[in-house]
Nucleic acid binder design. Sequence first.
DNA 1: GTAAAGTTGCA
DNA 2: GCAACTTTA
Length: 479
Amino acid sequence: MTRPLIWFRSDLRTHDNPALFHACRAGAAKDGKGVVAAFLVADHQWAAHDWGDPKADFICRSVAALAPRLANLGVPLVVRRAPRFRDAASALTSIAQAHACTGIWFNNEHELNETRRDEAVAAAFQRDGRSVSRYHDQVLFAPGTILSAKHAPYTVFTPFKNAWLRALADRASDNSGLTVPVPQRQAEPVCDSEGDPIALSRTTFSPPPAPIFESWPAGEAPAIRLLDDFTRTKLVSYHLRRDLPALDGTSRLSPHLAAGSISPRRCLHDAISSGLHHPGAASWITELIWREFYRHLLVAFPRLSMGRPFALETTRLQWRTDPAALALWKAGRTGFPIVDAAMRQLAATGWMHNRLRMIAAMFLTKDLLIHWHEGERHFMRSLVDADLASNNGGWQWSASTGTDAAPYFRVFNPVLQSRKIDPDGLFIRRWVPELATLDGREIHEPSPLARTACDYPPPIVDHAAARLRAVEAFKAILH
DNA sequence: GTAAAGTTGCA
DNA sequence: GCAACTTTA
């Protein structure tokens, strides 16, 4: 007989979920005795990984949204608190014992601590004579399978992208579609009085501000609506509108991709269905490939999960310690309107437009010369889409410590970037309302007089001087 | 409009 | 060798 325990983590969906699909197939087979699902609230570990209230709340709401969808499949969901990853093995084996499960099914995660936890869980199940079935769902091509001619991992994005697209063309022939799990015959009622994920996370996390909650409905249904709406109406003009933060030109799917309430395969599938050969789809698919690239890197270079830079020589860089400047950056009071607008959008909504993430990150690491660790941590704690691979990859790119780093001497000019991506100052006006009366010409760099009149602070650094300082700091560590 | 500058990965 | 690199001055 077979009775799978499906363990959910960052794959909080029923559609196109390989572990769930195969568990349900086994549970509904001739000797199958149904499926039981589990989710562990690892609040202490999440906090240690710098998850903030927005992320923890989004994940827990995603779990709450998953439960009725599983119930429709005849799969009961057991939710338990297991504060640290080291508690996972005993929590899961006790669930397996209580519900007579014959094995565990799950999709792999790729971060270092997650990988170690999964090895411990797999070992514990095998010791008990239970089966372990693991699958890939986080990326289209499993980490380690996209390699250069020298059989090495790519460390530059464009060659990776080309190889990834070739692999996709090769795979197109096998044409395995998006899977839907089969319902289970008998849903045995499972008594789970502990099972409110949001209540279980309250030991460590607080409710996030209401606007965050309201901006980000959690779960598979909102994710699918977002993707449908995006591919139907926004994808054709994505390449033209994606870099303009005042417009709603992006998919806003990042929290769902991080939680797994939608699969990257489904995103790609829908984008391709809308016609691969138009520039909007090609441009968005490139963004999906950036996500894949950073996940592949995390596996190929374990030091990225340990706070170390990809470019090891940048460990020697003389970063500045400046708590006052760091606090102003976090608060959106740097005196650079586009940076402040971005940081205030982050604080208010738990999300920041991708182009603004680069500008804000470049400002902290180059203009202020503050260690990228500080920015990485602040983003992790603030973002509803917090994700180690993407966040670390983006920060190291901006800091020029990463793979495919912008050369150190290429420092974004926040005022030029501002004019380019927010030409009329619409976005700045929305998030820095004290500048609302300034015209589109002045709003990017208000005069001292205008700053006084608007009660807006002077710039905390002179960009030209700060740029030279950053370039010199990098030159100093060249061999 | 064009020079600036370092490295990867493939021709 | 040479193009590419989410560019700036």
